[in-house]
């Protein structure tokens, strides 16, 4: 085959960026024990807010900053429901996605048909935001595994009752983690509108938030795993498109199923290892998806 692997890799870096950001954010939220299915809603919010700010100020980086704030802000709705009102996380996340898609479609009208300012490229002719995404991977790994705050966050996610008994504020930890997840999803969404398309149209994230959720599972809840997952999911798309461009016939539907099947297999292997060898750690956080209420 005449395909240059380096060119595929460069395509992949850019293609994987939105899902990498969103998945890293969701990783932190899930490590704190919160399953937020509203990633798509937060991404689209970031896509619009970021685009509006980039268009208004002419500065794409300011756009990304605003996108992060907007993503975090809308995640507070989810946090209020699940942490304050103790509503079910799955239902609240789905509601957030619906609400985010509707809200942005409504407020996005004035920004239709206008263009975002051009994104300056960074070192090696690669976009600065792509670099930022790559840098976030070791940072989040370090935060989760080496920092004290990360230890507390994981403790809250593994066993919120124990964390509470030790005097940690479960609710505050989770709200913060979800807000971080929202900020990252917002940046991921803004990458689509500011760096990929340079325009705003409603529903433009087109399901990337759902892929991010799959990537977190694939990652076995680790930051390097998220990078691998984003590259796998982005890579399958890029590779099949690249092969097609080179004139090779590929079974697109079957190939696009593959990453999801791989995710299930990874999940099963990790769960099985944990179940049969009784090793600590690995697999899903112990309190994932469960709400916490302190009885005092």
């Amino acid at each position: 085959m005449m395909i240059d692997p380096l060119s595929v890799f460069l395509l992949l870096l850019s293609a994987a960026t939105p899902i990498l950001f969103a998945a890293l954010g969701e990783l932190v939220a899930e490590r704190a024990g919160v399953l937020n299915l509203g990633v798509e809603g937060m991404m689209i919010t970031g896509a619009l807010a970021g685009f509006a700010a980039a268009h208004g100020t002419g500065n794409p980086f300011l756009g990304f900053l605003v996108a992060a704030v907007a993503g975090a802000a809308i995640s507070l709705l989810f946090s209020a429901l699940t942490q304050l009102f103790l509503a079910n996380q799955v239902a609240s996340g789905l509601a957030l996605t619906l609400f985010g898609l509707g809200l942005t479609a409504m407020f996005g009208k004035p920004f239709e048909g206008v263009k975002a300012p051009a994104m300056p490229t960074g070192p090696l002719r690669i976009n600065w935001i792509v670099w930022l995404g790559l840098i976030m991977v070791p940072l989040i790994w370090w935060f989760l595994n080496r920092s004290r705050a990360g230890l507390i966050l994981r403790g809250v996610g593994e066993n919120h009752d124990a964390a509470h008994a030790l005097g940690y504020d479960v609710r505050l930890t989770r709200v913060t983690a979800v807000a971080f997840g929202g900020a990252m999803a917002g940046v991921g969404g803004a990458y689509v509108s500011i760096a990929s398309v340079l325009q705003w149209t409603e529903g433009m994230t087109a399901g990337a938030g759902w892929i991010a959720l799959a990537i977190v599972v694939f990652s076995n809840w680790t930051a390097p795993g998220v990078l691998a997952g984003a590259w796998l999911f982005g890579g399958v798309t890029v590779l099949q498109l690249r092969l097609q461009a080179a004139g090779v016939q590929v079974p697109v539907q079957l190939l696009s199923m593959a990453p999801y099947l791989a995710t299930i297999i990874v999940l099963v292997l990790i769960s099985a290892r944990q179940k049969f060898s009784r090793r600590a750690g690995g697999a899903a956080p112990g309190s994932l998806g469960q709400n916490f209420h302190a009885l005092r």
Partner: peptide, 18 residues
């Protein structure tokens, strides 16, 4: 797809790389 900006961008880049 008829409409999926991220994927369309990937498709354009795949063609450019070719």
């Amino acid at each position: 797809t008829w409409y999926d900006p991220a994927k369309e961008a990937d498709a354009a880049n795949a063609l450019l790389a070719e």
